[in-house]
């Protein structure tokens, strides 16, 4: 089935640019007639994911795929990976350093927010093998 895809690179520790890809994705979606509420959820998930890659992960990329019935966001990085995924998914769990906390990160709400805002959420990660997240947003009867 026809679909439209685009990928953007995310750089380790680049906090000025982290989030830019999600803004581009948001603007791309805004040029269509997709429901603004869905666009917002996609953008929020993308943003949290991007920040996580830059802060905890390594170098990576974020890809969007717009299909007839769903939007898929894939976020991959080559960082240290997550040892205990169940723990990382818990609200409030964070390994952010004091420095990040001073910048307003580290509430431990990123992954739970992504889980809440996506219609389907899948995370694969193990120590040493990076982190790979796939999120799906249903567009039924929308575009």
């Amino acid at each position: 089935m026809a679909s439209f895809s685009k990928c953007y690179a995310i750089k380790k520790n680049d906090f000025i640019k982290a989030g830019d890809a999600s803004i581009k994705i948001k603007n791309l979606l805004k040029s269509t007639d997709i429901d603004p509420a869905i666009i917002r959820r996609v953008a929020v998930c993308g943003y949290e994911g991007e920040i996580n890659v830059a802060m905890h992960g390594g170098n990576g990329k974020i890809c969007i795929d717009i299909g007839e019935n769903q939007i898929t966001i894939k976020i991959d990085d080559d960082g240290p990976g997550i040892e205990d995924i169940d723990l990382a998914m818990k609200k409030g769990f964070s390994t952010a350093t004091d420095k990040w906390r001073e910048m307003g990160f580290g509430a431990g709400m990123g992954l739970p927010n992504m889980f809440k805002n996506a219609d389907k959420f899948n995370i694969e990660s193990e120590k040493g093998n990076g982190t790979h997240i796939t999120m799906e947003f249903s567009l039924k009867g929308n575009i």
Binding site: A2, F4, L28, T32, D33, I66, E68
Partner: peptide
């Protein structure tokens, strides 16, 4: 505001 683009149009532009 611009008229919204369809999925096909997005692909065509790309």
């Amino acid at each position: 505001q611009n008229e919204p683009l369809s999925l096909d149009q997005l692909m065509e532009i790309d």
